[in-house]
């Protein structure tokens, strides 16, 4: 029982980190569908840096690459006011493709000194709490929420809508990068193409399931973690084909989306802000 809970937390941590990152920018009104690609590329960056300079640099590098990719999405979603959904999907493809391409030389290389999973799992929990406080107790949190609900009003009050959104994308990108670093440095200390295995999409669905609340995302992530654990545990011991188990997280995401489809999203979610209009 204890082992099950521990594994649930460890499985749930990358989902939690990535969904906190997506949640942050979505509260500011910017949809991030690039999570999967951002995670893959920062996992690779973290792994490469850790091989060269040690795990701490690996984590920093993963976070940094995640932040940069968040800002990259910002160029399209905020600066150019392009379609956020398409930009995110393109970023997902680009990130997955580029990491597969650049990571080829690292395939099969083991990481000499992996990070303890527990440390990062604890950090993820602290980040969730911090994000909750940031959103509910700080001035920036107020700005972020107002930008996500009604950017026009926020703009009239002198809040820099674009500035708030860039910061949210950079901070959120950093968390997504940390999720990637967790995968390649602690969870499975190695690099393989496609190692994110759909976790990024699960994280995006979790944001909706959690109703855009960081603390609820914690519970949801650990719940997903428990399901992943059960999937590994039951595999082989029951007469169900392993493909059915592998497909389970995706089926779950669909169910979650159907159950929480009408949850109230930030009102300006996905809409580019134009002062002139």
């Amino acid at each position: 029982m204890e082992e099950a809970l521990l594994r649930a937390v460890l499985f749930g941590t990358p989902i939690l980190l990535a969904s906190l990152g997506a949640l942050l920018s979505e509260r500011g009104g910017v949809v991030n569908l690039g999570v999967e690609g951002m995670m893959a590329l920062s996992a690779l960056a973290a792994f490469a840096a850790a091989l060269e300079a040690g795990p701490v640099w690996g984590v920093l590098c993963g976070v940094g690459v995640g932040s940069l990719l968040g800002l990259f999405l910002g160029v399209f979603a905020v600066f150019l006011r392009a379609n956020q959904f398409v930009a995110g999907l393109a970023l997902a493809a680009l990130g997955l493709g580029a990491s597969g391409l650049l990571g080829k030389r690292y395939e099969g290389t083991p990481l000499p000194d992996p990070l303890p999973e527990g440390v990062l799992a604890g950090l993820a929990l602290i980040l969730a709490l911090g994000l909750h406080l940031l959103l509910s107790r700080t001035r920036y949190g107020l700005y972020l929420r107002s930008v996500g609900e009604n950017p026009k009003a926020a703009d009239l009050f002198g809040v820099s809508v674009d500035g708030v959104r860039y910061l949210a994308l950079a901070l959120g990108g950093g968390m997504i990068g940390l999720a990637g670093a967790y995968l390649s440095l602690a969870y499975r200390p190695s690099w393989t193409d496609g190692m994110t295995s759909g976790l990024g999409w699960v994280a995006i669905a979790l944001v909706i399931l959690a109703g855009w609340q960081p603390l609820r995302a914690v519970l949801g992530a650990y719940f997903f973690g428990l399901l992943f654990f059960l999937q590994f545990r039951l595999q082989g011991s029951v007469p169900i084909p392993s493909e059915a188990f592998a497909a389970m997280p995706y089926l779950l995401v669909i169910l979650v989306l159907a159950l929480s489809g009408r949850a109230r999203a930030p009102r300006a979610l996905g809409q580019p802000f134009d002062r002139g209009r």
């Binding site: 690609g37 393109a90 493709g97 391409l101």
Partner: peptide, 17 residues
């Protein structure tokens, strides 16, 4: 790796929008 096609497609889509 055939993934290179994803890169080209992603970049093309981004430059388009």
């Amino acid at each position: 790796p055939f993934r290179v096609v994803d890169v080209v497609a992603g970049l093309l889509l981004l430059s388009l929008i």
